[in-house]
Amino acid sequence: MNVGLAAQVLSKSVADMFKTLRKSKEKQDTSIYDDTTETEKFCRYFNYLFDCLNTRQLYEAEDKRNDAMLPYKSKDDLRLKWLANDFLTYLESWQNYAQTRTDLSRDERNKLTLSHQTIEGLKITVYSFLELIPFLLSLQGAKFVLSEKFNQDGVEIFFAKQRARCGRGDNPTAKQFMHNTQAIRTTKSLSFGSSSNIRKRKLSLNVDELSQPIRKKARNK
């Protein structure tokens, strides 16, 4: 599964679609969209969350006209307050509402919300982010923070290459692991595969090219 494509479902465009269809007067049967208010809110909240956690460049927000993708320059950033006050409260209220439905069984109540593991993962991510941004900005010389740099793509690539080198063996020894690591370094195979589910990045390397080939040195006879 491509995570980047899957995340695009929870976008502002999808939320706007629900809102437009609810208010549409051209189509006769729009009653099926009457109960999509919370779905629209869910898409907007997670779209904004993804934008807050994926600021990649200094001027990307201007290019895309999206203030949520501005670099973090202050510990009092409004996005941090939104994460702490709005997003976390949204998750808590949603979870509490589902658990108060006494007319449903336990399994049915659990199906009304995200899984417990997903909610805990979101909370850990947001709480860590709220602590990390002010700390980094307090360091001497730190002028801004790009949140997209907090990712584990490099780790995922590394272990994907490890699994590929192990073949059918899924329980390598420490010696095999170190041997595979050395082979990965030697072959420079830490690259993005065509089927990887992470965002591809362009590496900018400054290579000095000589206009003339190097002259061969005369051998001492």
Rank of each mutant, 00 (worst) to 15 (best):
M1D: 10
L5T: 14
A6H: 07
Q8M: 10
V9Y: 09
L10N: 05
S13Y: 05
A15P: 02
A15M: 06
D16Q: 09
F18M: 10
T20Q: 13
R22V: 12
K23F: 00
K23I: 00
E26R: 11
E26A: 11
D29P: 06
T30K: 11
I32E: 09
D34W: 10
T37G: 00
E38S: 14
E40D: 06
E40N: 10
C43K: 09
Y45L: 14
Y45N: 15
N47A: 12
Y48G: 00
Y48C: 11
L53A: 03
T55L: 01
Q57T: 15
E62F: 09
K64L: 14
N66T: 02
L70P: 04
L70F: 04
L70N: 12
P71D: 08
P71Y: 04
P71M: 06
P71A: 04
S74V: 05
D76A: 10
D77Y: 03
L80C: 03
L83G: 04
A84M: 07
N85W: 01
N85Y: 03
F87H: 07
F87L: 15
L88S: 04
Y90F: 14
L91F: 01
E92T: 14
E92F: 01
N96G: 00
Q99T: 13
R101D: 05
T102E: 14
L104E: 03
L104W: 02
S105F: 01
S105A: 05
R106A: 11
R106P: 02
E108K: 14
N110R: 14
S115E: 11
H116P: 08
H116G: 12
Q117N: 11
T118L: 11
G121F: 00
L122N: 06
I124R: 12
V126L: 01
Y127V: 15
Y127N: 15
S128F: 05
F129K: 04
E131P: 05
E131D: 15
P134K: 09
L136E: 05
G141Y: 08
V145G: 03
K149C: 12
K149I: 08
E156R: 07
K161W: 01
R163P: 08
A164G: 02
C166H: 02
G169P: 06
G169A: 09
G169W: 01
P172L: 03
F177W: 11
N180W: 06
Q182W: 05
I184Y: 00
T186I: 06
T186G: 11
T187R: 08
S189L: 03
F192H: 13
F192V: 07
F192G: 03
N197T: 14
I198P: 00
R199W: 00
K200A: 04
K202P: 04
N206V: 11
D208G: 04
E209Q: 12
L210A: 13
Q212P: 01
P213A: 10
P213Q: 13
P213I: 13
